[in-house]
C-alpha cells in the first residue's frame, strides 16, 4: 500500500492506494468460464492503534483501490494504519506517519 497522511488544520487527510485485482465475478475467461469474484470486503483504519474507520467494499470498487478520508484530530508523528481483508480471507496492513 502507498499511504499519505498530511496534516490539514487540526486534523489530517489520509490517502491510500492499495494493490488488489478487485475481480468482479462477472467476467469470463477466454474459455467462457466465469472468473470468480475476488475483492477486498473490509477496510479498517486506526490512529495510534485506535479504530477510526471501517468500510465495506463490493466488487465495484476499482482495481488497485483508492481511499481518502479526513481525521478530525491528528498531529505530525501520529501513526495511521490501514488494513484490508478480501474474499479469500487474505489480509494486509500497512502503516504511515502523519506528516
Amino acid at each position: 500500500m502507498r499511504i499519505r497522511a498530511q496534516v490539514q488544520g487540526s486534523g489530517a487527510v489520509v490517502r491510500v492506494l492499495m494493490n488488489h485485482e478487485m475481480e468482479t465475478g462477472q467476467r469470463k475467461d477466454p474459455n467462457g468460464r466465469t472468473i470468480p469474484a475476488w475483492h477486498i470486503t473490509d477496510v479498517t483504519a486506526t490512529l495510534n492503534g485506535k479504530t477510526v474507520l471501517t468500510a465495506e467494499w463490493g466488487p465495484a470498487v476499482s482495481r488497485n483501490p483508492f481511499l481518502q478520508f479526513t481525521l478530525k484530530n491528528a498531529k505530525a508523528g501520529d501513526k495511521v494504519a490501514i488494513s484490508w481483508k478480501d474474499t479469500r480471507g487474505d489480509t494486509r496492513t500497512d502503516e504511515a506517519t502523519v506528516a
Binding site: G11, A55, G58, L71, K72
Partner: peptide
Amino acid sequence: SAAFHVTDAVEANFST
C-alpha cells in the same frame, strides 16, 4: 459500491 462507517474521529467525507 462501498459503505463507510463514520466515527467521531473522522469526518463524513470519503473518496474512492
